[in-house]
């Protein structure tokens, strides 16, 4: 990789870090809004690292496929587990409330 590409990637990463800290302190987008903003910036940073520092743009496509498959695995795992837990959580809460009520009596 050429020196300008290396330094450019690095400067981009530093800029995005400053941006995400700035958004955290200075801008209130609501709880979810700030989370989304932070994640978008983090993903931009991750893409920079992957594309240039880790040479994925110049590399064999198969290596990218491995990485993409792993990301897919993580997403699958988190999303399904998350969906299920958020589905049964109200029942758990209800049960705990009932138990608390019963204890009061």
């Amino acid at each position: 990789m050429s020196i300008p590409a290396l330094l450019g990637t690095f400067m981009g990463l530093i800029f995005l870090t400053a941006l995400t800290v700035g958004v955290h302190y200075g801008v209130d987008l609501g709880g979810k809004g700030n989370l989304i903003a932070a994640m978008v910036i983090a993903t931009m940073k991750a893409s920079l690292v992957l594309a240039f520092f880790m040479h994925l743009v110049f590399d064999k496509r198969y290596n990218f496929m491995i990485f993409a498959t792993s990301v897919l695995g993580v997403v699958l795992f988190i999303s399904i587990a998350f969906t299920d837990v958020s589905q049964y959580e109200p029942m758990v809460q209800q049960r705990q409330a009932d138990l608390a009520k019963a204890a009061e009596k």
Binding site: G73, L76, I80, T83, D84, Q87, Y88
Partner: peptide, 18 residues
């Protein structure tokens, strides 16, 4: 095989949807 793990959990408190 990666999409079916919840069938071990039908009776352990997993939600109906899952």
């Amino acid at each position: 095989g990666f999409l079916v793990w919840g069938h071990h959990m039908f009776t352990s408190g997993q939600s109906k949807l899952a």
